[in-house]
Write a protein that binds this DNA or RNA. Structure first.
Length: 261
DNA sequence: ATGCCAATCGTTGATTGA
């Protein structure tokens, strides 16, 4: 079973690239972020025609998350991260597919730091800690997949010294990510590629992709019940080099569910 | 310190992203 995460940076602008990638790699589940489209503008028919059913939580202009499953409808278990009834940003959606609980998330960027956006990011991280702990307590196989907007370590950024004051790399944010991992989650990509420079994002500026000036900010975290099934984790890097690309590349894990059954 | 690019909304620029 292959589960992927892909920040598409606009589902409208990215639909051809998304459909091409789905057709080529046929992941079983895909978490999408940054739909940048209201609920009614999600291209459901095109997704269905590609062999997928979807649930999504849109928002005008910004944010927006979705979960796609190949040949079946994800069974939704929640949308919106618990812990703040006043938070109306579409950044979390959760579903069950083939007995796996999937949390698709788009963690706030947080720039500029310090400031209210950075405070919102840290509060969102606190809420994620609480909800993630609850998911772990269930003992179920769980995956948290999405754009975390955090480079966990210096290995995950092409030039660490340039990013130390950025909201994606500040010590508080890295500490929050490591506090989350310490609950028992497995960072799948790093586990399968220890010590390796491996990025998931390259910005549009300064020929960042051509220079491999990238960041690792898209993550797939496995609960202890699911981690033994992990057999591969990769980045579909070439997708970033195509025409009209997202600034993120699809990132995925391969799970052998026989190993945990 | 800023711009560099790209998307959306909506209109020819402002805002956001990372």
């Amino acid at each position: 079973m292959r589960i992927a995460t892909f920040n598409v940076n606009g589902i409208g602008a990215r639909l051809p690239a998304l459909l091409q990638w789905l057709n080529e790699t046929k992941p079983d589940v895909v978490c999408l972020q940054e739909l940048k489209a209201p609920q009614e503008k999600f291209p459901e028919a095109a997704i269905n025609d590609a062999g997928y059913q979807a649930i999504w939580h849109g928002q005008k202009s910004w944010n927006g998350v979705a979960i796609l499953a190949r040949g079946q409808k994800p069974i939704e278990t929640g949308r919106g991260l618990p812990g703040d009834a006043d938070d109306i940003q579409s950044r979390y959606i959760e579903a069950i597919v083939d007995g796996i609980l999937i949390g698709g998330l788009y963690l706030p960027n947080g720039n500029p730091a310090p400031g209210p956006k950075f405070d919102y990011k840290l509060k969102w991280f606190d809420r994620l800690h609480t909800h993630a702990a609850k998911l772990l307590d269930s003992g179920a196989p769980v995956i948290l997949a999405g754009d975390f907007n955090v480079m966990p370590t210096e290995l995950d950024v092409y030039k660490p010294e340039r990013w130390v004051d950025d909201a994606l790399f500040r010590p508080e944010v890295r500490a929050a990510y490591h506090k989350l991992l310490a609950q028992g989650w497995t960072d799948a990509l790093r586990t399968m590629h220890p010590g390796e420079k491996i990025y998931t994002f390259w910005d549009y500026f300064r020929n960042a992709y051509g220079r491999d000036a990238g960041l690792r900010i898209d993550h797939l975290l496995l609960s202890p019940a699911l981690a033994p099934a992990l057999t591969a984790a990769e980045v579909d890097r070439d997708v970033r080099g195509r025409k009209k690309p997202s600034d993120h590349a699809p990132t995925w894990v391969e799970l052998d569910l026989k190993k945990i059954s």
